[in-house]
Simulated assay, not measured.
Amino acid sequence: MILENFRVDLLVIPAGMRSLPSFQKKIQPYLQRTRVVEATNQTTIPNCPLNIRYPFEAGLAGNDDSLAWTGKIGGQSIYTAGDLDRNGEQKIWSKYPDFSPTIVKFGHHGSKTATDPTVFAHWQPKVGLVSAGRNSRYGHPHQEVLDVAEKEKMIVYSTQEQGMLRYSYRGNHGHFEVSIHDPAGY
């Protein structure tokens, strides 16, 4: 566990998670001096280039309460939302209609429960990231997600295909570095 091997100064979790028995049993004992912030879209994290856009209120820390983060890094607008589902994506789109990310990390490892086609048609992201293991027993990423990416003409980087992904940037310029094959040809 990361908390056993690294000093963690700040842990940001969805509002409502800290009171859950599983959190208190599996995470709380390892926190030591770690400051825990239970967050909603109203929470600001000092010195962080990303903003929390979801959840809007405290929940039970299920997939539908996953933290959604947005921000501008290396000249690109970025969206990442853990295991958030299509309903959560629709709520974000409704609350932030002018938000349009360039780079998205597909929700829930590319599960068909995320990546709402209507939201993505509005956002029109250029790059999609899939974080999923090779030969995922859950079939991630699902074909429905890849179909959305293809329809939106997105470049897709997947840990299954490209291995380790890294976005390197300086100022307003950034690029992806991969360990196997770059679908963008860089």
Rank of each mutant, 00 (worst) to 15 (best):
A81F: 09
R18F: 10
N51R: 15
M154V: 07
S168L: 11
M164V: 14
A132G: 02
N135T: 04
D147P: 06
T115M: 15
P21Y: 12
T80C: 12
R170D: 14
D85M: 07
N172G: 08
R134Q: 13
A184V: 00
Y138A: 11
K112L: 05
H173Y: 12
R18C: 05
I155Q: 01
R33T: 14
L129K: 08
F23T: 11
M1F: 08
H109F: 14
P46F: 07
K153S: 07
Y79H: 08
P125K: 06
N41W: 05
M164S: 09
R166C: 10
E144C: 04
Y79W: 15
R7D: 07
I103Y: 04
D116S: 11
Y169V: 02
R86E: 12
D98P: 03
S168F: 00
G174K: 03
I45V: 15
Y54M: 10
W123M: 04
K95I: 03
Y167N: 06
V127F: 12
A61F: 00
G62T: 14
A121F: 02
T102L: 06
G110K: 10
G174T: 03
E177K: 10
A58M: 02
H109K: 09
M17V: 02
P21F: 11
D147I: 05
P101I: 11
I155W: 06
P125H: 05
G128S: 13
T34K: 01
T115R: 05
F120T: 11
N135C: 07
Q124K: 15
S66N: 00
D64V: 11
R134M: 12
Q143P: 05
E177Q: 09
P101A: 08
F176K: 02
Y157D: 08
G171Q: 03
H175V: 04
L129T: 07
N51V: 10
M17R: 11
I78R: 04
P117G: 10
G139A: 12
T43V: 07
D85K: 10
E4Y: 03
N5F: 13
D65M: 11
Q124S: 13
Y96G: 09
Q24A: 06
E57A: 15
G107F: 00
Y186M: 06
P29V: 04
V8P: 04
I155K: 04
I52T: 06
Y186W: 08
